[in-house]
Amino acid sequence: MRTNCTFSGSGGQGSALLAKLICQGAMKQGLQVVMTQTYGIEQRGGDSTGYVVVSDSRIGNPLVENDADVSVALSPTIYEGCLDGSAVGGLVLANSSLITETREREGVKQVLIPASDIAVELGSVKCANIVMLGAVLEATKVLEFATVEEVLRDLMGAKKPALLEMNLKALEKGRALYLSAAE
């Protein structure tokens, strides 16, 4: 079973971290992962995309070639790319706090999540990516929630308990949002 994921956002929105968290979780569950990132000037701002392939067997093609099973679009600038890069039958999760104009694409399901607004409510706009992560997990079941919570604890638990608390809430909120939005 193989899942292709695309996580996109503007620099600083944490799309790369989102990709890494999925990878860490997958490894905890004994799955194989490959992460690729776009080249170029992204390190200095601009758009950034992390591609992740998760599989329970040896990964052949390590690339996501316009066949993403799930895409996260955090900013409007990469929304079009996410939609076009989705597989038929794929899912696009769009950050509706920032992406106000959307369009339909045949065979691609879209779910709008106001991730940035929710993140601000939870205490920091920076956890919008984690809100999205909650939605991804609920939508794809690619990983167990408990695994990702453990990854977050490993990452920030001991040193930053308040941050952990906020991110765990964000994760949960993302899940709930997806459930209600997808209905």
């Binding site: 194989q32 992962v33 490959v34 690729t36 990964i59």
Partner: peptide, 9 residues
């Protein structure tokens, strides 16, 4: 270089 910059388990 694509393989080199790829992150995997």
């Amino acid at each position: 270089g694509v393989t080199c910059t790829m992150t995997e388990s």
